[in-house]
Computed example of a mutant assay.
Amino acid sequence: MTRETDYAIRTVLYLSGRENYFAKAEDISKTMDIPKSFLRKILKQLEKQGLLRIKRGVSGGITLIKKPEEITLYDTIIAVEKNVALNRCVVNKTVCGFSSQCPVHPVWFKLRDRLIKALKEINFSGLISHGTVL
């Protein structure tokens, strides 16, 4: 998982714990220790994926479009990474000349399927209820 994905998860987690799922970018940046330049990029990706809305201006801020129980870790990871894979050959077989005879190659696919299933079962409402609301 990239740092960018970690920051995206922190962002959605923070918003999930806020009243009306709303916050200012500065508050997210400070509280979740996300550099502002990274946060802007992540917010755009999450907005493009339909997870949040960005309102600019003095009365602006960031709001989740969906409720925390409707947003999974999978949704957030896909917003940034575009796919889930444990190895690059799972995303593109042509990057490895051994894919056709590699005994580990099918294992990566099975593990990826299990990981995706698990990520789709974990929503932010559950994460908030099991941890401290920031």
Rank of each mutant, 00 (worst) to 15 (best):
N92L: 12
C89W: 13
C102Q: 03
N92D: 15
C89L: 15
H130P: 02
S59D: 12
E47H: 12
L51G: 09
D27F: 11
K24C: 12
I128M: 07
E69M: 06
L73H: 05
K30F: 15
A79I: 05
M1Q: 08
L15K: 11
F124T: 02
I34S: 07
F124V: 01
A23L: 11
V80A: 02
L39T: 07
T31W: 01
S99E: 13
T72G: 06
K66L: 14
Q101Y: 07
L111D: 11
K30T: 15
A8C: 04
G57I: 08
A79S: 14
E70A: 14
S37R: 14
I71P: 00
L15A: 14
K44D: 07
L119M: 10
W108F: 15
Y74H: 15
I78S: 11
F109E: 14
P68M: 02
L127F: 03
Q49F: 09
I122E: 05
N123F: 01
T72D: 06
K48W: 02
N123H: 13
C89K: 13
D33S: 12
V84W: 05
N123E: 03
E26C: 05
E81K: 13
L46E: 04
S99L: 02
R18T: 12
T76N: 11
Y74L: 14
L119I: 08
N87I: 04
L43C: 05
H105V: 09
L52M: 05
V91R: 13
F98W: 09
Y14M: 00
S16Q: 05
K24H: 15
K36C: 00
R18H: 09
K41G: 00
G61L: 14
N83P: 00
K36L: 06
R112D: 12
L39W: 04
R88C: 06
L73T: 08
I71F: 01
G131D: 12
I62C: 05
C102I: 07
G57N: 02
I34C: 02
K48I: 02
E4W: 03
A118C: 00
S100L: 04
R18V: 06
L39P: 04
T94V: 04
G60K: 09
I71R: 05
T5L: 05
V80L: 06
R40G: 13
F38S: 14
L111R: 13
A79E: 04
E26P: 00
K44S: 11
F124L: 01
I62M: 06
T132G: 00
A118Q: 04
T11D: 13
S37G: 02
K82W: 08
V90D: 13
E70C: 10
K55P: 00
S16N: 06
E81L: 02
S125K: 12
A23R: 01
S16A: 15
V84T: 03
I9M: 15
K120M: 13
G97K: 11
M1R: 09
R53A: 13
W108S: 06
L46D: 08
P106Q: 04
E70W: 08
Q101S: 11
L51I: 12
S99I: 10
I122Q: 10
D27T: 06
E4Q: 14
V80M: 03
L13H: 08
L46C: 11
K93Q: 11
L15E: 11
A79N: 01
L64P: 03
V107K: 12
N87C: 12
L13T: 09
D113F: 06
L39F: 02
T5W: 10
I65E: 10
L43A: 11
S29N: 07
V91C: 04
S59L: 13
